[in-house]
Design a binder for these strands. Sequence first.
DNA 1: GAATGACCGGATAAGAACATACGGTCAAAC
DNA 2: GTTTGACCGTATGTTCTTATCCGGTCATTC
Lengths: 249, 249
Amino acid sequence: MKPENRRAGRPPQDAAHRLARAHRILDATAELVLRWGYDKTTVEDIARRAEVAKGTIYLHWKTREELFSALLRRERVEMITEVRRRIEDGPGTLHGLLALLAAELLSRPLTRASLLGDSEVLGALTRRKRESTAAAELGGDFQTYLGTLREHGALRSDLSPAEQVTTLVSVLYGFLIVAQMMPPEYRPSDERLAELLADAGSRALAPAGPVPAGAARTAARATLAYVDAAVETAQRKLRVSLGTEESTQ
Amino acid sequence: MKPENRRAGRPPQDAAHRLARAHRILDATAELVLRWGYDKTTVEDIARRAEVAKGTIYLHWKTREELFSALLRRERVEMITEVRRRIEDGPGTLHGLLALLAAELLSRPLTRASLLGDSEVLGALTRRKRESTAAAELGGDFQTYLGTLREHGALRSDLSPAEQVTTLVSVLYGFLIVAQMMPPEYRPSDERLAELLADAGSRALAPAGPVPAGAARTAARATLAYVDAAVETAQRKLRVSLGTEESTQ
DNA sequence: GAATGACCGGATAAGAACATACGGTCAAAC
DNA sequence: GTTTGACCGTATGTTCTTATCCGGTCATTC
């Protein structure tokens, strides 16, 4: 309506520009959500901060919710990629993997909030579908990973695969939630917490007898393979959320 | 006002009758809270069901909240007493203690709700003072118990006492909360869950090397002593809540 | 004294009427 | 074809007012 539109339309915008713009929008979203929380962050706020029109956001995502889903998925990619990068320095054990995962989870407010169902930050988004939560998105590959470790004697064999997953998830959640509830003066540092968590988790699944020769090497390979797969999965889901790739289902 | 009072006043009521009546009121409270939840259960409902007048309840407790506190404390006494009874059949290990505690917690709706902060059942009571929650009421003795085990080589010594408590509390919470979140078809049975929990908890604190000779016997004695102390503590707090004993502080 | 239940007042809910905000659309501008 | 932002309808607050409820008290009864 207004004739003095600053600049409507024009440069056809190639794919690279489109992608950069999507990330700019996600940057703005992350910043505002961390400051005000999901409930109080409006699409218009985001548009203003990303310096695009509101309608432009809807050229990328069909609904507000899909926008936030993309944000969480991008965070998840960053997290698991960082784990992938740092795991090469370590021994490639379950213990090491848990410690890295915990440390990364603790240092990323959005991912942590999404995992813990922190309604302070994520508001109504928390109460939504639990299926597509971080646990579920990375959980599928995880069970097969544990299965591999078990087959090679790197894990105890008297728990079913499902029970092993339950055990690890419980330990993970337990430490994160309890730490959050503790008064700060009693709370261990994030590094120490990651260590305690990894310790408890790996001990819970440690094999009864001595580890077979060569199991360490096999385990390290399986761990790396799992993390690689998890990175791949996370990236694929992110590409779907960014419209870079069609959803295959 | 009404002249046709069924029967006001009379039998001076000795202490035994008083106590029996207090328990009748608590019975009624438990039943109604389990059915309707804390928020929806009124003092008048309770009075009606316990067949006393509303004012009579205030002869026992100064406020509604103190009444519920008494209820939770009574539950806690029953729980820990049952643990005390059943632990004599077992080996008196930390593993055995955890398994019994978990099993009892899982089978007692009110205690479980109070521990998990289940606002479905306990409503506003959940959001109140976290200090006097089950964890805190039994936690003091617990840390000294773990200290004893550690001194005798029955626990690893590379975690501080506080870290040991944090670890066990995290494992306990984690299993209970995660189980509650799982879809029922994946959830292990309560017995199995208690077993997994006890396994994870005891392994997390297991000593590095072999257990010193005689440590098992010492540990069993310490475990029994702890449970006895916990029973004693719980009973004392209950007596305070029932007006049987003055609060000493 | 002991027990009762009518009664009190503050808190909370229910309802109505109104205002605002926000997710999502689309005709117009380039 | 791309981008925009005014516009739409609904969902969500806000501000009153009114009604009900319920924790706690206490004069009355035995």
